[in-house]
Simulated assay, not measured.
Amino acid sequence: MAQEGNRKLSAEDWAQAALNALGEGGLSAVAIEPLAKRLGTTKGSFYWHFKDRAALIEAALATWEQLGTDAVIAEVDSEADPADRLHRLFAHVIDYAAHDRVELALLASADQPPIAAMLRRIADRRIEYVAGLLREMGMPAAEARTRAVVGVSIYHGFNHLARVAPESLPGTDEQRKTLVDATFHTLLP
């Protein structure tokens, strides 16, 4: 195995480096030689862990799915009250949209089959999670689903604004809280 500094690199290190490159320059930025250079290693380290670039992209997508959806849901689920979970979810995703570019890069590559399948799966999971929270709050299933689609769409709008007009997103904690509250209330009848 190759080393970064004095540490042995893992497949997870490569996947994270691929995600970072993806967020900075899109799918085309996920290239083995530049990643090896960034990690301070050789291409041999890459081939120790992955068969090819497609396998690295698959690992990076799995990492992103875990961090961007699974971990967020687990964190939010620590709240007992579904309304508090929903509010906390939007606080988290508004902050995420302001600081992370990976999801936008993935959306820009949504025509690529492995990315399209993952994005569809994640969108369904996120919509179902928000709909479940709304149902727990007493909303009928059909209305909960519709409002969940609106909520996930709002999140994608935050991501887009962070990319094209970052100054339009809140800069202070108080402004961010106002935006989170407005989003939360938009979803409630």
Rank of each mutant, 00 (worst) to 15 (best):
residue 140 P to S: 08
residue 85 R to N: 03
residue 141 A to H: 12
residue 95 D to I: 02
residue 139 M to K: 06
residue 167 E to F: 04
residue 93 V to D: 05
residue 158 F to D: 05
residue 82 P to T: 03
residue 189 P to I: 04
residue 107 L to N: 11
residue 87 H to R: 12
residue 20 N to P: 00
residue 141 A to R: 15
residue 27 L to N: 03
residue 12 E to L: 14
residue 132 G to H: 02
residue 127 I to A: 12
residue 131 A to G: 07
residue 146 T to R: 15
residue 9 L to C: 09
residue 186 T to V: 14
residue 115 I to N: 02
residue 135 R to N: 09
residue 91 A to I: 00
residue 70 D to I: 11
residue 80 A to V: 08
residue 16 Q to D: 05
residue 26 G to P: 06
residue 123 A to L: 08
residue 26 G to I: 09
residue 3 Q to L: 13
residue 150 V to R: 03
residue 76 V to I: 15
residue 176 R to K: 13
residue 155 Y to W: 14
residue 57 I to G: 00
residue 138 G to Q: 05
residue 167 E to T: 06
residue 107 L to G: 06
residue 15 A to D: 04
residue 92 H to P: 03
residue 34 P to E: 03
residue 102 V to N: 00
residue 31 A to D: 12
residue 110 A to W: 04
residue 180 V to W: 03
residue 37 K to M: 06
residue 69 T to C: 06
residue 170 P to I: 06
residue 38 R to G: 11
residue 177 K to N: 13
residue 35 L to V: 08
residue 154 I to L: 15
residue 153 S to D: 06
residue 25 G to Q: 10
residue 113 P to M: 05
residue 115 I to V: 13
residue 117 A to Y: 08
residue 96 Y to R: 14
residue 149 V to N: 11
residue 69 T to S: 02
residue 76 V to K: 00
residue 28 S to E: 15
residue 82 P to G: 11
residue 182 A to S: 14
residue 111 D to I: 04
residue 59 A to I: 14
residue 26 G to C: 06
residue 44 G to A: 14
residue 77 D to L: 09
residue 123 A to W: 12
residue 49 H to D: 02
residue 152 V to S: 00
residue 80 A to M: 07
residue 155 Y to P: 06
residue 160 H to D: 04
residue 148 A to P: 13
residue 84 D to H: 09
residue 35 L to P: 07
residue 104 L to G: 13
residue 127 I to D: 02
residue 54 A to E: 13
residue 107 L to Y: 01
residue 178 T to R: 15
residue 157 G to H: 10
residue 79 E to N: 10
residue 10 S to L: 12
residue 8 K to T: 15
residue 78 S to N: 10
residue 100 D to W: 02
residue 84 D to A: 15
residue 105 A to Q: 05
residue 168 S to I: 06
residue 161 L to K: 04
residue 137 M to C: 07
residue 93 V to R: 15
residue 36 A to L: 01
residue 124 D to S: 10
residue 126 R to E: 15
residue 31 A to N: 06
residue 176 R to I: 05
residue 24 E to Q: 10
residue 95 D to L: 05
residue 100 D to N: 15
residue 9 L to M: 05
residue 161 L to R: 11
residue 13 D to E: 01
residue 137 M to F: 04
residue 26 G to M: 09
residue 41 T to V: 04
residue 30 V to H: 02
residue 118 M to P: 01
residue 128 E to N: 12
residue 116 A to D: 13
residue 173 D to V: 02
residue 13 D to G: 13
residue 106 L to T: 05
residue 87 H to T: 01
residue 79 E to M: 08
residue 172 T to N: 02
residue 124 D to W: 07
residue 55 A to T: 02
residue 105 A to N: 09
residue 156 H to P: 00
residue 165 A to C: 12
residue 5 G to Y: 09
residue 82 P to H: 02
residue 81 D to T: 02
residue 50 F to C: 03
residue 49 H to P: 05
residue 2 A to R: 10
residue 55 A to W: 01
residue 114 P to Q: 07
residue 78 S to A: 13
residue 172 T to G: 08
residue 169 L to N: 07
residue 44 G to Y: 07
residue 144 A to T: 05
residue 13 D to I: 12
residue 48 W to K: 02
residue 33 E to K: 11
residue 185 H to V: 00
residue 124 D to A: 13
residue 104 L to H: 10
residue 135 R to F: 00
residue 157 G to T: 11
residue 84 D to G: 05
residue 113 P to R: 01
residue 16 Q to P: 00
residue 130 V to C: 05
residue 173 D to K: 10
residue 106 L to Q: 03
residue 30 V to G: 04
residue 187 L to Q: 10
